[in-house]
Design a protein around this nucleic acid. Sequence first.
DNA 1: CGTCTATTTGAATGTACTCAAAAGCGGTGG
DNA 2: CCACCGCTTTTGAGTACATTCAAATAGACG
Lengths: 195, 195
Amino acid sequence: MNDYTKIKNYVARHIQLTEEEETYFVSLLRTTRVKKKQFIVQPGFTCKYRSYVLTGAMRAYLIDNKAQEHTVAFAIEDWWISDYNSYINQEPATLFVEALEDTILIQIDYNAEQLLMETIPKFERFFRIITQRSFAFLQKRILSNLSKSAHERYEEFIEKYPSIANRVPQYALASYLGFSPEFLSKIRNKRTGKS
Amino acid sequence: MNDYTKIKNYVARHIQLTEEEETYFVSLLRTTRVKKKQFIVQPGFTCKYRSYVLTGAMRAYLIDNKAQEHTVAFAIEDWWISDYNSYINQEPATLFVEALEDTILIQIDYNAEQLLMETIPKFERFFRIITQRSFAFLQKRILSNLSKSAHERYEEFIEKYPSIANRVPQYALASYLGFSPEFLSKIRNKRTGKS
DNA sequence: CGTCTATTTGAATGTACTCAAAAGCGGTGG
DNA sequence: CCACCGCTTTTGAGTACATTCAAATAGACG
């Protein structure tokens, strides 16, 4: 079932569309199913799509020159994910974007998005608003990384995003919060040990 | 001299305006002069303006509960600065935005910006594009913070932004890169000591 | 020239990392 | 349905990177 109700509601939270406009928008979308551990973006290949998670969970990460993983973003239901540097500039990706579970994505490709913004300028506004929000999110994350200890960042994360924390592998969460998986294990046990 | 040539060129790099539109845009701007150490944004007050640096240098920073400063952003000529969380949502600021030198700013206030986007939808596009770029910048910074050592982050910064590194106080740069000012001093001396 | 702030230097400390080994868990095939 | 294999998490010991605190020096500004 290609159900576009959820993504239509998502868009409707930010801009009002006529039925005709909505139909046009939906006509530019496509649905993709990915299995756990499958990649939708890999370094070297240009990222063609902006992806909305209908069901499932994804993550974007970098592998550095010491072969360490660093998670840039998670995405669960009703979130977007991509290698935005690659997508926006249509240049080769540096990130992996991987399914953490079997996932259904709704995707729009770069050219369709450009066309959509030209045809319905309200979408210019839509993408401005969601990008602004992502920007604000990243800024908070930088401040959290600068001002808090590993333990505090972990506590903050499980409080703010319990549904993500309980759903993703610990090594992925550790690499998002900026410490080693071993250390996350130690934090966790100190925590439950006390209660 | 209220010279709007530079900001007009800045805008022209992203969208094409008619003379009439440009005149309208400029009519919404105002020029503000701030002296070194003066604040344009303080926690608790809602940030009214998005500010473009005509000449001088600014920084935005947070003071955490241990009274430590953490620099979120620098801005020199041709850059924008604000507490965007406060500006975008028109809610009380959490950051200080301070002049590092005597600075001339060109500002647009929140209501004028909204009006501008309604009147000239091309500005919807303009703000989308500059926000996207800022987003990409922050994402790279997060990855750099996650994957690199203090020393590597310092080297990267002075290579990419020598004009900023040489212009701002060391404690401000240290608090941007995520380590103590004493440690920056040690990095620096190891460096020159070897050459 | 004097004062105030910023930077340097050194010693002691701490937070988080690395490496290695063991235990736990989940998926797959017999 | 159980047994096995591989991957993830746990645990511990030793280590490294960066911090804190304090004191000395240097620099900026009036």
